[in-house]
Amino acid sequence: MEGMSTIVKKVTQLMAGIIFMYGIYIILHGHLTPGGGFAGGAIVAGAFILLILAFGSSALNLKKEVSGTSNVESVAILIVLLLALMALLFGIKVFFFNYLPKGEPGELVSAGVIPLYNIFIGIEVAAAILTIFLALVIFKEESSK
């Protein structure tokens, strides 16, 4: 798959970073505004998909990328599980207990472990969607040879 024209590449260079930052914003403010890990992760994955579609797969070393994303995905879901298991050590002994201090409702740093869950679920969703897309692109490249 070859890249698109120069105009598309230039616009993608300008826009991809903004989309990526919007995704990070949606993830971090998941407990204050609409959004959260699922929406933000999908937006972050969308930024990478835009880059791959515009610049083509020849510019990237895709096989290394796909093993990287699947590793990131595995690590993120493991961290979510560990965060849930740590509730058995702190506070009352309940799986998924919110053991960190709650803070003031409406502040950015509040709600205990919920922002941490949001961040790691966001990483997991982004890496999973990117893995699926990269697997399809690599399959297409290999079969067209």
Partner: peptide, 12 residues
């Protein structure tokens, strides 16, 4: 929960 967004509170 400490979360202002009720959907996130239910989810997590």
């Amino acid at each position: 929960t400490g979360s202002v967004n009720l959907v996130t509170g239910v989810l997590f």
